[in-house]
Computed example of a mutant assay.
Amino acid sequence: MRGAGPYAGAMTPTQTSHAPAPPRPGLSAAQLAGLIACPRCDAVYRAVQPAPGERAVCMRCDAVLIAPRRRAGEQIIAVALAVVVLVVAATLAPFLAIEAGGRAHASSVLDAALAFASAGPAAILALAVAALIVFIPVLRALLVIYVLAPIVANRPPAPRAAAAFRLSEALRPWSMAEIFAIGCAVALVKIADLAQVHFGPAFWMFAALVVLVVIQDGFMCRYSVWKSLER
């Protein structure tokens, strides 16, 4: 149990106050439903719902386990819609324009991803890049909207909402639009001495996308979502 402050009353260890321990075998389904495991170190706790604005954290590794927020669902849906708009617009708008020797060339994100689409084995790599930076981020955002929209509207969960949310979480490590933007920024530093580089609208869209992804992950309380889907 944490002391006073935003962590107060967040967690109760399953067996000892010094270190969390796994539950004993033979627990009933109701007892198992009241437990939560740390996704980072696998410590198991009895879940106690903190008040909005407070957080439940792991006593072993300080990972955030439960972080409910007021009106978080509406905020996450708004961010997810913004992610969809930004990613779709960024695939069509110019990303970079390079000028050297009196010649200039502008390219969009989709042009860059599919540049090798007809080059034999490299086409697989091109399609993978397009999926990681365009299709998967859009799919994740749409899945989040599909799962949270009925919950926010106080309606029963959508059909197969649990499977949709599970897929969204499974795709999270593979959504790399923000990694692409950071990688491009690093590459620009290396070619700045060789040519004049001009940022297109899509570059700033991806910069905003990095911020939105961080905000979405900060607002998302996965424990609260799962509990809402169970109800």
Rank of each mutant, 00 (worst) to 15 (best):
M1E: 03
A8N: 00
G9H: 00
S17N: 06
P20Y: 03
P22K: 14
R24G: 09
P25T: 15
A29S: 05
A29N: 04
L32C: 08
I36G: 00
P39M: 12
Y45P: 01
A47N: 00
A51C: 02
R60D: 09
R60G: 05
C61Q: 02
L65C: 02
R71N: 08
E74T: 14
E74L: 15
A82H: 05
V83M: 13
V85W: 03
V88L: 10
A89G: 04
A97L: 08
H105T: 13
V109Q: 02
L110N: 05
A117S: 12
P121R: 15
A126E: 03
L127Q: 07
I133R: 02
V134W: 00
F135I: 09
P137M: 08
R140G: 03
A141G: 06
P150H: 08
P150M: 11
P150S: 09
V152A: 13
R155I: 09
A158D: 03
P159Q: 07
F165C: 04
F165I: 11
R166L: 11
R166P: 01
S168Y: 08
E169R: 15
A170Q: 13
L171I: 08
R172F: 05
R172W: 06
W174H: 05
S175Y: 01
E178P: 10
C184E: 04
C184K: 03
A187C: 13
A187F: 14
L188C: 07
K190S: 11
K190Y: 15
L194M: 14
Q196A: 14
Q196P: 00
G200F: 05
P201I: 06
V210M: 15
V210D: 11
V213A: 13
M220N: 11
R222V: 14
S224Y: 02
K227T: 03
K227S: 01
S228C: 03
E230S: 10
